[in-house]
Structures are given as structure tokens and as C-alpha cells.
């Protein structure tokens, strides 16, 4: 039996695809130079969820990643003497204990993907248990996935409930809700899923797992930022945003920050409100920081790959 949309959250406004693309393109036409660029680069670093999410992840690999999170670059490099640390390290639940040990006392958050990442195609009790265990093991942030199949089938109640229950399972940990926008097909769906997640208790909404293409795009991020803005105007709540996957260069990251600044403003220009889910972004940002300070273009050979 098809499930009617009975979930009792306010209707979502329609989203015009062409209009979203035009607006997103306009952010990308901003030219960020000099001190504004340095400020943006450092802000970007502070917002990165340094991520490793592969089947080959091992304690050794996660340790290396945590070391990178703590020591982004040689402080003797030009411009690198007062770098912020990244916002979080993001790993699979099995790697949480390893990362926890490495990150204790650093101020770097420990995020675990849970709820049957990346597809969510497991029974809900299993997914909730996955969440509880990750939190117990020391994760203070949980990146959950929603059941896209259920969402596309119109069973919004199910998705609402799974988010609400995951939120409950998180306890004190912050909940990031991954919509996997690459599977939602339309911006209208992205918008609806964003509203659903926020009403169900998300602390952050997040675009993607990184395993589906397209992952984060400026357009989909804009749709979600506008949903956050409307949710704030309606409820006063401040929900965070995390585009994840596909953001590889400083230039991209800066244009996301431009979008953030002009869509949500001051309150969101902070790692507590905005994250980049990325693995290779950090080094490009570091190279740009050194370039800004030294005036010379940089080589990847001088920045550790972890």
C-alpha cells in the first residue's frame, strides 16, 4: 500500500532548479583576495571534518589521519604558525576507539558515521544500536544516513521517525543527518528532506556520504542553506550544514563560504555551524595559505598526505 505523506511538518516551498543554479553561479563569481582570502582559508581549515571512510581503514591509517588533524602543516612554513585545527575527524564506528585515544584533549571532535552507513539498508534497531555503540565508544558527533528508498517511496513518517530515534540514541552527541542528495533526484526532494530532518531533531544536515555521485554541489548546498534559514526564521533554532564529498580545492571551499555568508550570515561562519566533509581539501588550503604568505605557488610534495 502506498504510504501517504502524513508527517505533520509545515509544507516546503517549491524550488526552481534553474533559479538555484543561477544563484549558485553568482556566489562563484565573487572574487576573494588578500586578507579576506587568508581569513577564509583558515576558517575553512577549522571547518574540515577530516574523513576516512573506506573498507581498508585500519588503526594505523586512522592514527595517521588523527596526527594530520593535530599537525596540519609544518609551523615553520610561511603563514602556518597559527593555524587552527580541523573541526573533527570522521571515521567508521569500528575506528572510534582508535581515534578517541588520538584526539583526547585536542578539542577536535570525533565524528562517526552510523546507522548503516552509507546505504542505511539495515533494520532500524541495528542502525540505532550502531549509533549507540559509536557514542559509547567516544564519538561526540554522529553522521547518520536516511532511508532514501523510504523517502522516495513517500514514507516520510518512517524517515522522520528514524531520525528522531537516532537523535534519541545519540544522547549528548550531535546528530548530522545525511540526506544523500545525489539519490534524491530533485531539489524539491532535497528541500523536503532537509525540512523533515530539521523538524525531526537534526543538529546538522549533510549532503552526502561521498559514495554516491554527485556528492555535494553548490546548488544542493544552497537549497539546504535556504531551508536552514527558513527553519531559523520560523523556530529560532540554528541548524548546522555540512556539504561532503567533491570539495577538493580552496577555491571551491571559499565559494561555499561566500554562499554561507550571504545566505545565513554571521552566526553560521563558525565550525559549530558549518563543516566540510573532505579528505583532500586540507592540503590544498594549506598550499594556498603558504602561497598567500610567501607569494610563491606551492607543490604537494611539501604537504603530508595522510
Amino acid at each position: 500500500m502506498p504510504m501517504p505523506e502524513t508527517v505533520s511538518i509545515p509544507p516546503s516551498p517549491p524550488v526552481d532548479q534553474v533559479g538555484i543554479h543561477e544563484r549558485a553561479a553568482r556566489f562563484a563569481s565573487r572574487s576573494i583576495k588578500k586578507e579576506a582570502k587568508v581569513q577564509a582559508l583558515k576558517l575553512t581549515l577549522s571547518m574540515i571534518d577530516l574523513t576516512t571512510l573506506t573498507g581498508a581503514d585500519s588503526p594505523g591509517k586512522v592514527k595517521q589521519l588523527c596526527t594530520k588533524a593535530k599537525h596540519l602543516a609544518d609551523p615553520d612554513l610561511p603563514g602556518c604558525d597559527d593555524l587552527p585545527h580541523v573541526a573533527a575527524v570522521c571515521v567508521y564506528p569500528t575506528m572510534v576507539p582508535v581515534a578517541k585515544k588520538e584526539l583526547d584533549g585536542t578539542g577536535i571532535h570525533l565524528a562517526a558515521v552510523a546507522t548503516g552507513f552509507p546505504t542505511g539498508q539495515y533494520p532500524l534497531p541495528v542502525r540505532l544500536e550502531d549509533t549507540r555503540r559509536a557514542v559509547e565508544a567516544g564519538a561526540d558527533e554522529i553522521d547518520m544516513v536516511i532511508s532514501r528508498g523510504r523517502f522516495l517511496a513517500g514514507d516520510l513518517n518512517y524517515v522522520f521517525d528514524e531520525i528522531a530515534q537516532t537523535k534519541e540514541a545519540c544522547g549528548e552527541a550531535h546528530l548530522k543527518v545525511i540526506l544523500e542528495t545525489g539519490e534524491l533526484s530533485t531539489y524539491d526532494n532535497v528541500r523536503r528532506a532537509s525540512d523533515l530532518a530539521m523538524h525531526a531533531g537534526a543538529d546538522f544536515i549533510k549532503t552526502s556520504t561521498g559514495t554516491v555521485s554527485p556528492a555535494a554541489t553548490p546548488e544542493v548546498t544552497l537549497v539546504m542553506l535556504q531551508a536552514i534559514a527558513d527553519f531559523h526564521r520560523a523556530t529560532g533554532k540554528v541548524i548546522g550544514m555540512k556539504p561532503a564529498g567533491g570539495i577538493k580545492t580552496s577555491k571551491q571551499a571559499i565559494h561555499y563560504l561566500v554562499m554561507l555568508r550571504e545566505t545565513l550570515g554571521q552566526q553560521w561562519l563558525h565550525p559549530d555551524r558549518f563543516r566540510f566533509g573532505a579528505s583532500s581539501l586540507a592540503n590544498d588550503v594549506l598550499m594556498q595559505i603558504v602561497k598567500q604568505a610567501s607569494g610563491n605557488y606551492q607543490s604537494g610534495d611539501y604537504f603530508s598526505l595522510d
Binding site: 565573487r30 572574487s31 523556530t235 529560532g236 563560504l257 555568508r261 554571521q266
Partner: peptide, 12 residues
């Protein structure tokens, strides 16, 4: 609730 567009980060 209102948004604040008077930001610490602005464009050079």
C-alpha cells in the same frame, strides 16, 4: 528571529 549579515568576514 533574524539573520545577521554584518559579518566578521567580508571581502577585500
Amino acid at each position: 528571529p533574524t539573520l545577521n549579515f554584518d559579518t566578521d568576514w567580508s571581502y577585500a
